[in-house]
């Protein structure tokens, strides 16, 4: 199983699409590692600089409809090779979300209010978080503050995380 804890990056926008996460011109790569320098290169977000802001990030928190657009699994892979195994959002585009779990990564949905709270209380520099898969909750800390946010994860999604992805799961079963 992958590791689900560490420094948090907040991306304060809805509808971040897979072209922004990894532009199509890099889809000519045939290894996941080659995608590493290009993560979020085209993200349209004021003051965000992908060459500066991704250092040591392990968890991304964003708004609604994260990962919409293309089916490219290069989007989760670009996160994965940068050490980011978790994206937390209000909701996800179907294919991106499935791709995350298919890779044994976590796409965690929180209620809108909780996402608002995370942005309001924890989004200044220095937030660290951890995903507790047994307790189905996110523990987040920043400065003196800490909080716990519950989420639901289906048995299937959890099975994929535990199996390290869909290939391992399906190969045993079908």
């Amino acid at each position: 199983m992958k590791e689900f804890k560490g420094k948090v990056l907040f991306l304060d926008r809805s509808d971040i699409n897979t072209d922004e996460i990894i532009p199509a011109k890099y889809l000519t790569e045939i290894t996941k590692e080659a995608l590493k320098p290009y993560l979020l290169e085209d993200l349209k977000l004021p003051a965000f600089d992908s060459s500066r802001d991704l250092k040591d990030v392990r968890i991304v928190i964003s708004r609604a409809n994260f990962g919409c657009g293309s089916s490219r699994e290069h989007a989760p892979w670009a996160f994965e090779v940068n050490g980011i195994n978790v994206v937390i959002a209000e909701n996800f585009a179907r294919i991106f979300r499935q791709n995350m779990f298919n890779c044994g990564m976590c796409a965690i949905e929180l209620k809108k209010d909780d996402i608002e709270k995370l942005f309001a209380d924890y989004s200044s520099t220095g937030a660290e978080a951890e995903i507790d898969l047994n307790g189905n909750c996110i523990i987040i800390k920043n400065g003196g503050k800490s909080g716990k946010f519950s989420f639901e994860m289906s048995e299937y999604d959890k099975a994929l995380v535990l199996a390290g992805g869909w290939v391992g799961f399906a190969d045993k079963k079908y």
Partner: peptide
């Protein structure tokens, strides 16, 4: 490919998927 939904024009359930789903589809 996300635009696989196109084939639904024929009364088909057609869905775009990522590479891992594709891989399992090819294999199984």
């Amino acid at each position: 490919d996300s635009h696989t939904c196109t084939h639904g024009a024929f009364g088909t359930f057609a869905a775009g998927v990522g590479t891992t789903d594709l891989e399992v589809g090819i294999l199984k």
